[in-house]
Design a protein around this nucleic acid. Structure first.
Length: 223
DNA sequence: GCGACAG
DNA sequence: ATCTTGTCGC
């Protein structure tokens, strides 16, 4: 795994982004997918603590096989564009606690649909050298046309005349999600997996399970 | 100057 | 992210 000293300033974080952005692989470089991990973080600003969690799902049944969570101190402020530096420390800790290395990781945030083409999913993927997909709830950059209301409809997310992701309707008449390449996954494969992971709800099952876990853990932590 | 701005 | 109950609808 790639290591670096945690940035202490915005400038240092930007340097890391710039030097790592060209390591992102935007084509399929993945083996057979047996397990998919979902990750998320919850905050308690009062105690300056964060809960990071990783849930492992069976790729075929979407059942949860394993859950791990960690508690750490908040180490970086929230700055749009540098968001990954805030969440990556607890996410790495949680993923390392899993008994197996996931074949794919779905992130709650963007991959290359980012001003520097190095969002949270790409950052995590490059550090671990594991295939990742970014699936955000709102856009960070780019322009798009709203996709048709039927589930499965999608349009391009464009930035500087380049397609950086897809706006995908995961349920009929429900607000779409923003899918982008994280690392070692093509955009078509990314969209196909998000489609498989959303049989019933707007967000991928991975994200939903990870979200529930961090919120349960945070609640337990405060009691 | 003003609006936008992943979680 | 988080503050936050009930309520309308399938």
């Amino acid at each position: 795994m790639i290591q670096y000293d945690a940035p202490q300033t915005e400038e240092q974080a930007i340097e890391i982004q710039t030097s790592f952005a060209d390591k992102v692989i935007t084509s399929d470089k993945l083996a057979y997918i047996d397990t998919i991990a979902g990750v998320d973080v919850a905050y308690d600003e009062d105690s300056n603590q964060v809960v990071g969690a990783a849930v492992l799902l069976d790729a075929k049944t979407l059942e949860v096989i394993e859950s791990c969570s960690v508690v750490e101190s908040i180490s970086f402020p929230y700055i749009p564009g540098l968001f990954s530096f805030r969440e990556i420390p607890p996410l790495l800790s949680a993923i390392k606690k899993l008994s197996v290395t996931p074949d794919l990781i779905v992130c709650d945030g963007h991959g290359i649909a980012h001003p520097k083409r190095f969002g949270m999913a790409s950052h995590l993927g490059v550090l671990l050298d594991i295939p990742t997909i970014g699936c955000g709830k709102t856009k960070l950059v780019g322009e798009y046309q709203m996709p048709e209301s039927q589930k499965g409809s999608c349009t391009d997310l464009i930035d500087h005349q380049t397609c950086i992701g897809k706006v995908l309707r995961t349920q009929d008449g429900i607000k779409p999600v923003f899918v982008s390449i994280g690392h070692r996954v093509s955009i078509d494969t990314a969209v196909a997996w998000i489609h498989k992971l959303t049989p019933k709800y707007r967000l991928p099952e991975t994200t939903r399970q990870a979200d529930q876990l961090v919120n349960r853990s945070l609640k337990d932590l405060l009691c």
